[in-house]
């Protein structure tokens, strides 16, 4: 399997551009490093499984998403399926420095594209 090396560090700006994601609130810091991907809608599972620097792909849009993303120091949260998010979430996200991105595509489609970019969640 292809190993990600220093020369192909993937940055958030590339993720946003390649998958056509929209910033829900403040613009995503394009130079933020992305270490991998975690996909889950159960927040308890994300608390246990996600690693710092990962992009979290979900359809969950409850306010607690922000708390979990901050706690786990995730690079960004991608909320899929064309969902809109409440302003209270965006306000909290900007306070916590959490990046919320919106995808029109399904979680499967988003994960597929992130895989094609070379991102993984290696056990």
């Amino acid at each position: 399997m292809k190993k990600v090396t220093n020369s192909d560090i993937i940055r958030l700006g590339q993720v946003v551009a390649d998958i056509d994601l929209a910033d829900a609130g403040a613009a995503a810091p394009g130079d933020r490093e992305v270490s991998g991907v975690y996909c889950s809608d159960l927040l308890s599972d994300v608390m246990g499984g996600a690693r710092p620097g990962e992009v979290w792909v979900t359809v969950q849009s409850h306010l607690n998403v922000v708390a979990v993303a901050a706690l786990k120091e995730l690079a960004a949260v991608v909320i899929c399926g064309g969902r809109s998010v409440d302003v209270s979430i965006l306000k909290k996200a900007s306070e916590e420095g959490v990046v919320i991105l919106l995808a029109k595509q399904s979680a499967f489609e988003v994960c597929g594209r992130l895989w094609e970019l070379g991102l993984r969640h290696e056990d």
């Binding site: 809608d41 927040l43 308890s44 409850h62 306010l63 607690n64 708390a67």
Partner: peptide, 8 residues
């Protein structure tokens, strides 16, 4: 299980 924490 779903929300991880009691919402604020």
């Amino acid at each position: 299980g779903v929300l991880g924490l009691v919402p604020e």
